[in-house]
Design a binder for these strands. Sequence first.
DNA 1: TTTGTTCTTACGGAAACCCGTAACTAATTT
DNA 2: AAATTAGTTACGGGTTTCCGTAAGAACAAA
Lengths: 221, 221
Amino acid sequence: MFNKVLVADDLGSIHLGVLTVIDSLGIKNVQQVQYCDDAYLRIKKGLLDKTPFDLLITDLSFKADHREQKFPTGELLIQEIKNISPDLPIIVYSIEDRLHKVRTLINVHGVKAYVCKGRRGLIELSSAIQKVYNNERYLSPQVSHVLSNKYALEIDDFDILLLKNLANGYSQEEISQQFKKQNIKPSSLSSIEKRLNKLRIQFKANNAIHLVAIVKDIGLI
Amino acid sequence: MFNKVLVADDLGSIHLGVLTVIDSLGIKNVQQVQYCDDAYLRIKKGLLDKTPFDLLITDLSFKADHREQKFPTGELLIQEIKNISPDLPIIVYSIEDRLHKVRTLINVHGVKAYVCKGRRGLIELSSAIQKVYNNERYLSPQVSHVLSNKYALEIDDFDILLLKNLANGYSQEEISQQFKKQNIKPSSLSSIEKRLNKLRIQFKANNAIHLVAIVKDIGLI
DNA sequence: TTTGTTCTTACGGAAACCCGTAACTAATTT
DNA sequence: AAATTAGTTACGGGTTTCCGTAAGAACAAA
């Protein structure tokens, strides 16, 4: 079983439960932090001391407080960890269950398991740790269908960028101008209209306002 | 100190921490549930048995799963509890820190304390329980300014309703029609335009899309 | 090269939104 | 009762969005 595990989660009330699970798996060397920056430093220190961690369990969202943070979110932490310790397996343990987030974490950032906090969260976390130890992947049931190809919402980065600009109050004309300046491929007003029309149909939205409200709700932007 | 306490929270990992706190305050009779509906039934049963609870600690958001729920959120639960047991003090323990929510819970639903889950959540929860026992109110520091009058954003229910309709894809014309049918006071297209204009200025939004994005971000709708 | 497909761009008209001005109503003040 | 004020409604015109149609550009297949 894993030897040295780091847990990053800002909620004190969560820690106790997680530690119980880890303990029940016979892992003795567990450290916990409440800030991503601390997690980063601990992992770096482990590398320098030649006693590296062999598992990271982290949340995604960390409440901001007075302490200035270099990595305000788990996602940014994970990204950075990949640079300094690419082989360290990572389990995300988060309340977040938006499919787009999960897909990015698995496919882009290469996390090994994604466990949704919930009623059965701790049980699933236990399974996840064992799976990951056996070099398998684990996904909570409610997000497990993320990787099935049929759920391939053909929404690309351009769409996301477009929607973000829209949500930031820019008119379609302004967005067109910006895209031209930044050399982003389809930049004509007409193309932007067309793309938005496609998105409206895809999300069954009545108009642009509705569209932005919907994609915000499902966490696409 | 309180005698019989009910804790409603769907995250297994939270329970352990909360129970530790309650235990350290010398409260022996604690029950916990993972669904609002169960909380409602327990409280009702306590009343029938003449052994009522004298404190409820509840989360706000409960993940939906296969079980059909009468009360899907803590807010609805609280509302109903007020009917069957108006004097039962309630502490909300939630990750939610949107001021509008907190204000509604305190002022409309009369909850006695609002504790934000976070790094110091359990410590604050402990204070909250003691305060409430002494019939005082408790608010986590990050939301404590909610009740200071100077933060009186003059945004009323009409504004909220308007914004929700907008976010649901209705045109201003359609909203006007609806309001006329429902006998909601200012219903002319002109008034709706004017009100939206006020909101746009208030929130520094460029257009309606931007406005909806902003109020969604701050959790107003 | 030709054909066909897909993507991008262009244009035009109807609808919706934005924004000012002004009239009308209701409630309050004097 | 007259005047002031706040709130609602009405209207006009400029801008933006919406939604067709269609022409041009890029690319692959035959």
